[in-house]
Design a binder for these strands. Structure first.
Length: 589
RNA sequence: GCCGUGUUAGCUCAGUUGGUAGAGCAGCCGCCUUGUAAGCGGCAGGUCGUCAGUUCAAGUCUGACACACGGCUCCA
């Protein structure tokens, strides 16, 4: 397996050289950046200078590449000195290569790979490269050029914008096709497409980009997911609070967001001239509820819970569907507690996260998000050390497998981030539990301890869904829109065959009206519709299926006679007696 | 923000070399009373993303803007 992976990587890497050779032949004045092998293929970043390149040019480049491969060219390594390499780069006006070479240590031996036609010894392309490569292009498997995109030189937006040509490459044709098929499947499940088809949310240019509007159906889904996420904490003694969505900027100067959080949206009051901001987080507001009264150690831990929107001025190019928005709903909670209560609070939240993700059918992995050396943080080094050690100790105590993500911490402290794996095997950061020694200090929060002295509480931030919008985008793709019964916007649809069994349809309606599900959330009154239109049954079924309604009940004269309903679900068809219908539905939730 | 692609009826899409727009579905109106994924017929529906420009003439060509989609170090 190892050897196979290595071979595929060699092949992908060699293909990037072949692509460069083809490009140079077609566009002689280009300057080359880097051309690595990647997960599903390869790319090359190229500066095309004056020439414009677009998707339409890909077939031309691909054809040229196939020609080079058909010639049976070889990849030959050649060692040169650093000075020789620099001279080569200068002579050929390869400024990017020159930059790369000049960064290599003095005296280092450098490898070049030549793409050579063995029949006449012609060198089609010579490139600075550490390898490794296939020996002969005959070893190359299945590949195709994929798309064209822009990429900053070395990923730095202050530097030149190069054109990146992406290619896909696999060992066999089957693997390439399987990959393309998987892409197709992902496209079919795309939450933006399903969001429209299932009537869950929409956008309006008048409202603005990155600002989703939820329809009645989408709102039900949101509410159900939120209820699930809040339920765990309500049962652990969290109490709901409610705050306004704006505050004076003084609040964020105190919290540090004004200085460290560029996405903060600010505005000036025409009335008072005050500078205000839309809340980018909820903790400062919540801290002021804690600060509103003298607190005793006896009432700790104080646990607040609120699902509410925060607003962030995200970079426009990064907005997309529900996964990246400017108005974000967090199922947020904040706990103010003593040092020795931290473990208990974390324990409850970890158990809740595990249970919630099991209920939605996603596997969890744990990332401990620690700080890096950047300056986007508040609080002193000692405090960070203490918090990070505590987080790691808890991961061990609760027997969670974890890895450490450096540079992933929040502004005010390290986080325990739960990564959920969806049906397509993709990993997403959703639930998060954060330990914060900084915010309480900045806000001067305190409580009176048993000895009468004042102490600073510790704050624990948590969101189990993370952002509801993001969670929904993933959940929609995870389920492909086939939501479990408990959270489906429309759980049951009754289809009449004709108008001759209306009396019986009314009986069924009455039975459904009495159905209340209690799992996984309590008091979940059944949501159902009755399709009495005079369309054919086939058409009604098609419509209900397109909306991915989990349970479809067909009720006609034959059913009335037998006092049953014809049930149609994704699993198939069956008959259920009217008397058993309620129990049948409850059992399926 | 930057690079590339796109925007035609509520939705999915046609629209050849510039000659003032088409289909299917959905909608509405009839007929059909229908048994497990589209019954039949008719009607209505569009400043072709927006604003400029070129032209006798622009959905089609040019420019700007808006919005959407894909990408923006898996470090020779």
């Amino acid at each position: 397996m190892e050897a196979e992976n290595l071979q595929v990587e060699k092949m992908r890497h060699s293909l990037s050289h072949v692509m460069a050779a083809a490009v140079r032949e077609l566009y002689p004045t280009t300057t080359f950046g880097i051309g690595p092998a990647i997960e599903n293929g390869f790319y090359y970043d190229i500066d095309f200078g004056e020439s414009k390149v677009s998707d339409a040019d890909l077939p031309k480049i691909e054809k040229k590449m196939r020609g080079i491969i058909a010639r049976g060219c070889e990849m030959r390594a050649r060692e040169v000195s650093r000075d020789e390499a620099l001279a080569w780069a200068k002579e050929n006006k390869q400024v990017y290569k020159e930059e790369l070479i000049s960064e290599l240590p003095e005296g280092e031996t450098i490898t070049f790979y030549d793409l050579v036609d063995p029949k006449n010894g012609e060198v089609l392309f010579a490139d600075l490269c550490k390898g490794s490569h296939v020996e002969n292009l005959k070893e190359i498997g299945a590949w195709k050029l994929d798309r064209i995109a822009g990429a900053y030189w070395r990923g730095d937006e202050k530097r030149e914008m190069l054109t990146r040509l992406y290619g896909l490459a696999f060992a066999t044709q089957e693997e390439l096709e399987a990959y393309l098929e998987q892409q197709e499947e992902a496209k079919k499940r795309d939450h933006r497409k399903l969001g429209k088809e299932l009537d869950l949310f929409c956008f309006s240019d008048l409202v603005g980009s990155g600002l989703p509007l939820f329809t009645p159906r989408g709102t039900i889904l949101r509410d159900m997911l939120n209820e699930l996420a809040q339920g765990y904490r309500v049962r652990c003694g969290y109490r709901k609070v409610c705050i306004p969505h704006i505050a004076t900027v003084d609040l964020y100067k105190t919290s540090g967001h004004y200085q460290k959080f560029p996405e903060l949206l600010k505005f000036i009051s025409q009335e008072s001239g005050d500078e205000l901001a839309l809340k980018p987080v909820n903790c400062p507001h919540h801290s002021q509820i804690f600060a509103s009264a003298p607190r005793s150690y006896k009432e700790l831990p104080v646990k607040y819970l609120e699902t509410t929107m925060v607003y962030r001025d995200e970079r426009k190019g990064e907005l997309g569907g529900l996964s990246r928005v400017r108005a974000i709903t967090q199922d947020d909670s904040h706990v103010f507690c003593t040092e020795d209560q931290v473990e208990g609070v974390f324990g409850e939240l970890i158990e809740s996260a595990k249970d919630l993700y099991a209920k939605v059918g996603m596997k969890l992995t744990l990332r401990l998000s620690f700080r890096d050396d950047g300056d986007g943080y508040i609080g002193d080094a000692e405090m960070w050390e203490k918090a990070q050690t505590a987080i790691e100790r808890m991961a061990k105590k609760f027997e969670m497998e974890y890895f450490v993500g450096v540079g992933e911490a929040a502004m005010y402290g390290p986080k325990m981030d739960f990564m959920a794996v969806d049906a397509l095997g993709r990993e997403w950061q959703l639930a998060t539990v954060q330990l914060d020694y900084a915010m309480p200090t900045r806000f001067g929060l305190e409580y009176t301890d048993a000895d009468g002295g004042k102490k600073t509480p510790i704050m624990i931030h948590c969101a189990l869904l993370g952002a509801i919008e993001r969670f929904m985008s993933i959940f929609i793709e995870h389920t492909a829109g086939w939501f479990p019964l408990w959270c489906a916007p429309e759980q049951v649809r009754v289809l009449t065959v004709n108008d001759k069994a209306e009396a019986y349809v009314k009986e069924v309606e009455k039975a459904l009206r009495g159905v209340v599900l209690d799992e996984p959330i309590k008091n979940n009154q059944l949501r159902f519709e009755i399709d009495r239109t005079d369309d054919s049954l086939g058409k009604k079924i098609k419509r209900a299926t397109a909306m991915k309604i989990p349970v479809v009940l067909i009720v006609g004269e034959k059913d009335a006679e037998a006092r049953e309903v014809s049930v149609r679900t994704r699993d198939g068809e069956e008959k259920v007696g009217l008397d058993e219908l309620v129990g049948w539905l409850v059992a399926r939730s």
